[in-house]
């Protein structure tokens, strides 16, 4: 497995883990009160920050446990990244229609912010899954 493919797996794990943790924290804080009244800002910012650090630490740990022959990306990595970026971008463009609609409907900040966060998670997941499939099954 190449350095870049390992990075895609680490990123996928971190995105799923951090978003799962965020959802768990928010649902835990709700506990009987309406979701829109839950204090979401601090958990959201903390988990975004933690996910950035976890991605860096995860890559270091994976490379320490199973070093790659080279840490340079090549033309295939760039092709695969380009494909992942374009599919992810498409998903982001569609998903961002939701917070846009919520803002137009004057929904609460909670729902707008969370719809935006979910859109970015969908972007990250779609792009990374496409990259992993391209690494595993091929890119023509």
């Amino acid at each position: 497995m190449s350095y870049e493919e390992k990075g895609a797996w680490v990123y996928l794990t971190v995105v799923l883990g951090s978003y799962g943790a965020y959802i768990a924290v928010i649902l835990g804080r709700a506990d009987g009160i309406p979701l829109a009244e839950v204090a979401y800002v601090a958990p959201m910012l903390w988990l975004i920050g933690i996910s950035i650090v976890a991605n860096i630490v995860g890559r270091v740990v994976v490379e320490t446990a199973k070093p790659s022959g080279s840490t340079k990306s090549d033309v295939r990595d760039k092709d695969i990244n380009r494909l992942g970026g374009s599919i992810g971008g498409l998903v982001l463009a569609v998903a961002m229609a939701v917070p846009f609609g919520l803002a137009l409907a004057k929904a609460s900040q909670f729902w707008i912010a969370n719809a935006m966060y979910a859109a970015f998670v969908a972007f990250a997941l779609a792009g990374t899954l496409v990259r992993i499939v391209a690494y595993r099954r091929g890119l023509q």
Binding site: M1, S2, Y3, E5, G69, S70, K72, D74, V75, R76, D77, D79, R137, G138, L139, Q140
Partner: peptide, 28 residues
Amino acid sequence: AELAEGIGVTRQTIIAIEQGRYSPSLEV
């Protein structure tokens, strides 16, 4: 690995090309 080093790509890319899982650019 030697072929990969000769053309500046990773060994995984050579494997993918050999197995028909990646169509290289004309330059490669």
